[in-house]
Design a protein around this nucleic acid. Structure first.
Lengths: 182, 182
DNA sequence: CACCTCCGGCTAATACCATTAGCTTTCGGG
DNA sequence: CCCGAAAGCTAATGGTATTAGCCGGAGGTG
């Protein structure tokens, strides 16, 4: 091998820093190459094209999110686990709003698989409720939809009114928990 | 006035048809101009730039959604109103998935105002629960987050497993309603 | 030690897109 | 009948992704 300076992972690292600092719209091959100290076409040695880079970034973000929410659930069960999972979810979004906005639900199988890993965490957190197969999946979808919807709206400044977002999210958590007792 | 062939509204019409047929990524000034039978720079006589066109499209979509959900709520109250609102929300998304994906939560004030109009519908649907000012806003945010999160995931094929989405959404509705009794 | 291969960088070229400047046409009102 | 403004046009600029093809060095092989 020659000059192992860059790699697909390293390119994604650069892309993530770029997104964090300048927003998802700034994610361009030219900008990434510039930051990596390399000419634009060189990136094609590590990444198929811009669409794939976006997908790789999305996978990285979803895996980070899965890792944190998974860690938050450890050692807790039922309501406490759900609350911890949702709090960890939002904490990640608040810490990296641009990163979260950069996620694209592409048709790429790699992104779908990352989504599955995230759903697996949610399903694990729901285990204590003793839901049957299909019911567990429906519940996991609802939890994901609630957390994701709030996250998207907060990350993109969709909430206008000045009321405390912490309180709104606390209500959402209580709503989800109440709904799970059905 | 001369040659009133095109107008900002007409441009948005063309853009919406384009998005419906080819997806949000195809929304480009060149493509819109081509469909409108006009040269690309001519669009600037009706729209400030691509960002504004995206914002105008978003406003149109959010207003359509507000109109339909608002109509669904008419004559119903409490749980029935909530259920009707959420069903209308998803019905719109299923009917026009690309359109929904094209919505951008931009910083533009016009988009924020359209969001406010949508929130107003939600607040009206919640009136029967007799929530006090701030509580109503928190509840409206949660309902919006739940409906929007599910909509985004469904519109962008975020749900992989084969379970019936209708059932999942029905559970989400029941969760929201159960949560509102708190 | 010399050689050969392959990998990861490069430059050049192409095509598409947004945007601006400035010209032309066409209508509608005085 | 004329004139001004609105709405179209062409031309030009700059940024972007992407492809093709060249080049040099690192590492293994004789």
């Amino acid at each position: 091998m020659a000059r192992a300076a860059l790699s697909a992972d390293a390119v994604v690292d650069v892309a993530l820093r770029l997104v964090d600092e300048e927003g998802p719209a700034a994610l361009t091959l030219a900008a990434v190459a510039s930051r990596a100290g390399v000419a634009t076409p060189s990136l094609y040695k590590h990444v198929r094209n811009l669409a794939e880079l976006r997908a790789l970034v999305s996978v990285r973000v979803m895996d980070e999110l899965a890792e944190r929410t998974g860690r938050a659930v450890l050692g807790r069960s039922a309501d406490e686990a759900i609350r911890a999972l949702m709090l960890a979810w939002r904490a990640y979004v608040v810490a990296h709003p641009h990163r979260y906005s950069a996620v694209v639900q592409a048709a790429e199988p790699m992104v779908a698989q990352a989504g599955d890993r995230l759903v697996a965490i949610v399903l694990a957190a729901l285990r204590a409720y003793g839901l049957e197969d299909s019911d567990a999946i429906h519940a996991a979808r609802c939890l994901r939809a609630a957390a994701h919807g709030f996250a998207v709206l907060e990350a993109e400044n969709g909430f206008q009114l000045p009321e405390e977002l912490d309180e709104s999210y606390d209500l959402l958590i209580r709503m989800v928990i109440a709904g799970l007792r059905t």
